[in-house]
Design a protein around this nucleic acid. Structure first.
Lengths: 151, 151
DNA sequence: CGGGAAGTGGGAAAAAGTGGGAATTCAGGG
DNA sequence: CCCTGAATTCCCACTTTTTCCCACTTCCCG
């Protein structure tokens, strides 16, 4: 499981240094082969290749005639790029994905279990504060899974 | 599986440079023979020839008296053009198809499994943002497959 | 304070992308 | 039937981008 938030900087060529504590895991799990794609919150998702492939299988099995499913496929498969960790422990993020997520220099890498999220730092901070402020609203109509969640 | 989004530019003659990372696959799968046709979202679809032929077989077997089937046949088979990757890794897109998809110079090539989608860049970005904005709405009536999808 | 590892920047070689010219083919008109 | 003009195809060459690798700096730990 990947956990934790790390402040990272992209260099002028769009390269991201993978924090050391994840490297060994990434190396053993997928031999340095990662897949990045987009998320609806305008951040990027980064999966070890085998985990991505499983997601992809799920995606392509979705009903083709359903509009929402089509959109999800288009975006996630459409933007998915394979990348490889280089000799210095860095990955090069494709220009298209950097532009999508508004990534320039300062970014946040968020461990999320089987994947990472990568945010432009400023956007991350904004959204985080929004989430914290919004938490109280939803009260009554919580989905069952959340209703009984104990933290 | 073809995946990933690439910004591409068409030159004055309407030629499109196939991104290198796809070339080997295209060469081995179909010896550089591709088929382009139209999609109802006003973009183009590009298939390796054998994959297209399978689609085409399915299309012509559809019930001829069904209006929707006839339309689909007319459009997809009607616009389908075979093209060949040239010595520089480029394909020449027929004028009719370029006009159909509003392709001028800046375009996006989107890998979608067995095929590519080719969009005018501006149109792609617009549609993408619409899809992302729309995704949040649908909340209540999600199909079962999506309801429990974990990414 | 020193050694090592990690992070960062940058340069050079190679590859890919891009434009354009010349040759060939095709269609239409004299 | 041939000639002319336009369009297509093929190929070459330049420019830009990417990739690979090296080196410096900084940070952490001994």
């Amino acid at each position: 499981m990947f956990r934790g938030a790390t402040k990272v900087t992209l260099d002028a060529k769009g390269r991201l240094a993978v924090p050391t504590r994840y490297r060994e895991r990434i190396q053993s799990r997928c031999d340095g082969h990662l897949v990045v794609t987009v998320d609806r919150d305008y951040c990027l998702l980064m999966y070890p290749l085998p985990d991505w492939e499983e997601i992809e299988r799920k995606l392509v099995r979705l009903p083709s005639l359903n509009k929402q499913a089509r959109r999800l496929q288009r975006l996630m498969v459409g933007y998915a790029s394979e990348l490889e960790v280089d000799g210095n422990g860095r990955v090069l993020l494709p220009r298209e994905l950097r532009e999508f997520a508004g990534l320039d220099r300062q970014a946040m890498l968020i461990g999320q279990g089987n994947k990472f999220e990568l945010w432009d730092e400023a956007r991350w901070n904004e959204r985080r504060d929004e989430w914290l402020a919004a938490e109280d609203d939803a009260g009554p109509d919580l989905p069952a899974e959340l209703e009984h969640l104990s933290l």
